[in-house]
Design a protein around this nucleic acid. Structure first.
Lengths: 134, 134
DNA sequence: TCTTGACCCTATAGCCACTACAGGGTGCAT
DNA sequence: ATGCACCCTGTAGTGGCTATAGGGTCAAGA
């Protein structure tokens, strides 16, 4: 099985430029080339890129993906590190959710107060402006 | 009242570099200068930067902040546009929350299954790897 | 008066994770 | 021979800052 970069992209839902970018930063290993200097991928590369994509879709950073890839090769060792990485990531996701929910509350409070008046009486603009009664 | 850039930063919780950046991109207007070529800010600038900071803290993009600033000057007009902008932003925030919550569910499902074994039996690594039973 | 140190200035490069060119080469069908 | 889809490299751009280099200014203290 030999895949061109475009085909690999189609199968993994990755843009061609992104694949080349991953290669450039060392996340993917430079594959063999055809006579015409085209990248030629095999199953191993397909699997590796799939792994990368899923991890990225789960919100892991490139660096975390690198770590996960390295860990996934050490099949006999404890998966405690994997667990820890995923746990840290989960905590980060939960923090972001909390931040966004605080934001949502503020924004919807502002919006619910809107009296459809003019800018000069707009509570949203007011809320952004300098504190007047302080 | 005349403020140096550092003083303005302190009063608005903004780094000096960020203020200069805002000026460079046109979000803040270039202020008067002292004899020694230092930026000299007044109350208007303090208000404007406060506005920017609050809007940024609420998660508005720089472009949205530009729009809000432009709107806030047109005090006699309807605030419908402001409302719309804030509403669109709220919708965006809600979409992000939904995305992150889906993520959280996936991650915590993965983590709850961890049996503290080796990498080769790690369900997290499995979940990232290529689909095996398909 | 000199020096120290905190502050200020500009210009430029770096961060993340891509994305979008420009300017060319390859491969296959018509 | 021509067209078109695809591939190649290299570079620059995105957003929203942040950091650094290499200097200038200003006020206080010895």
């Amino acid at each position: 099985m030999t895949l061109s970069i475009g085909e690999l992209g189609r199968r993994t839902g990755t843009k061609v430029e992104t694949i080349r970018y991953y290669e450039r930063i060392g996340l993917l290993i430079a594959p063999a080339r055809t006579e015409g200097n085209y990248r030629a991928y095999g199953e191993a590369e397909l699997n590796r890129l799939s792994f990368v994509r899923r991890a990225r879709d789960l919100g892991f950073s490139i660096e975390q993906v690198c770590d996960l890839l390295a860990l996934s090769d050490r099949r006999d060792q404890s998966c405690a590190e994997v667990d820890e990485l995923a746990g840290a990531h989960l905590a980060e996701v939960e923090r972001k959710i909390a931040d966004l929910e605080a934001l949502r509350r503020e924004l919807s409070a502002l919006l619910s107060q809107c009296r459809k008046g003019t800018i000069s009486t707009c509570l949203i603009i007011d809320a952004l402006g300098p504190a007047q009664a302080e």
